[in-house]
Computed example of a mutant assay.
Amino acid sequence: MQGKSDACLYSRFKNNRWTFILTHVQDLVLCHQDKEDSDEIVRNLNKKIEMKDLGDICYYLGIQMEWGGNGSFFINQKQKIMDLIEHLGLTEANVAEIPMEVGFFKDNETKEPLQDNSQYRTATGKLLYTSTVTRLGIAAVVGKLCRKVNAQTKKDWTAVKRIGRYLKGTADLKLMLPANSNSRLVDYMDANWSECREDRKSTSGNLFYYGGGVISWTSKKQSVVALSSIEAKYISAAQACQEATWLYRLLLDFGINEPKPTRMHEDNKSCILLSQPERVTPQTMQIDTKYHCVRDAQQQGSLG
């Protein structure tokens, strides 16, 4: 059966056992609870298309995977990072302790534009993939530098190289996905109000845990200008609500009926009160209707 949340995910529940297939172009990842089930699927697929069994998964789409104890596993992109370091010419460079210089975006000094942006585009693209898949620690700074692809400066290019030097020193870090029978979906959210000095738009940040491991994260510039920190955090909550809804459906595709409500952590009391239907004031009426999905989800018991 094709997944409702992801068209590339297929599942089968037979003889009280689950089998999953994840597809990407011509590559398949097959997960099973019983090897007999996977062997049966492979035999049936071989009747339709020619396939080659590569054994237990250890490398997929640039992601290295290692099995841990008790069903947990680790993922990293060390090979991708080393390729990036070579692309940036940082093989012999010193490592950086943090991914970005403190106060980098507060500098109003006129900066010299970068004439050739081909390397910049390629490097930020590689960094974006890495920050999306395994290295959440650089997601915020990479997102900011990606905004400069059409008007980057030499200082921005230096910042890209600094991230490369940081990754060089932390290339061996791995993201752990532990196995936990008492797993619950939990979200932490925040927003940096009026952060962008060019258009005063805010940046949303969301982090989802499941079973004690991080499974989803976002650092994204908001599409509208928030008139207050409360509004910026409320918009961030709306984005987290959309992600939580998708993750809930994804868990259903895996045969997991996630209990509701999904626990969402927000540190602004006014933002929390704003999600209640009776909290409508002249100061909050300008908030776009689409962001009130938070209020709707809370009334339905999906969020808590």
Rank of each mutant, 00 (worst) to 15 (best):
C8P: 05
C8K: 09
C8V: 02
L9G: 03
Y10L: 08
Y10M: 11
Y10E: 08
S11I: 13
S11C: 11
R12D: 12
R12G: 08
R12E: 14
R12Y: 13
R12I: 15
R12T: 15
F13I: 10
K14E: 15
K14T: 15
K14W: 13
K14M: 15
N16T: 09
N16M: 09
R17G: 03
W18T: 03
T19I: 12
F20S: 01
F20P: 01
L22V: 09
L22H: 05
L22G: 09
H24R: 07
H24D: 12
H24Q: 05
H24N: 11
V25G: 05
V25P: 04
V25E: 11
Q26V: 09
D27L: 07
L28Q: 00
V29L: 09
V29N: 01
V29Y: 02
L30N: 00
L30M: 08
C31W: 00
H32Q: 05
H32K: 08
Q33P: 01
D34L: 10
D34R: 06
K35A: 09
E36R: 13
E36C: 10
E36D: 15
D37R: 03
D37V: 01
D37T: 06
D39Q: 13
D39M: 10
D39W: 08
D39P: 00
E40Y: 03
I41N: 04
I41T: 06
I41E: 04
V42S: 00
V42C: 02
R43Y: 11
R43K: 14
N44Q: 15
N44E: 14
L45P: 00
L45Y: 00
N46S: 06
N46P: 04
K47W: 05
K47I: 03
K48C: 05
K48R: 12
I49M: 11
E50M: 03
M51Q: 00
M51F: 01
K52G: 02
K52C: 04
L54Q: 08
L54M: 15
L54K: 11
G55M: 04
G55T: 09
G55E: 10
D56L: 14
D56F: 14
D56N: 15
C58E: 13
Y59Q: 11
Y59M: 10
Y59G: 05
Y60V: 12
Y60T: 04
Y60C: 02
L61V: 07
L61Q: 10
G62L: 01
G62I: 02
I63S: 02
I63M: 12
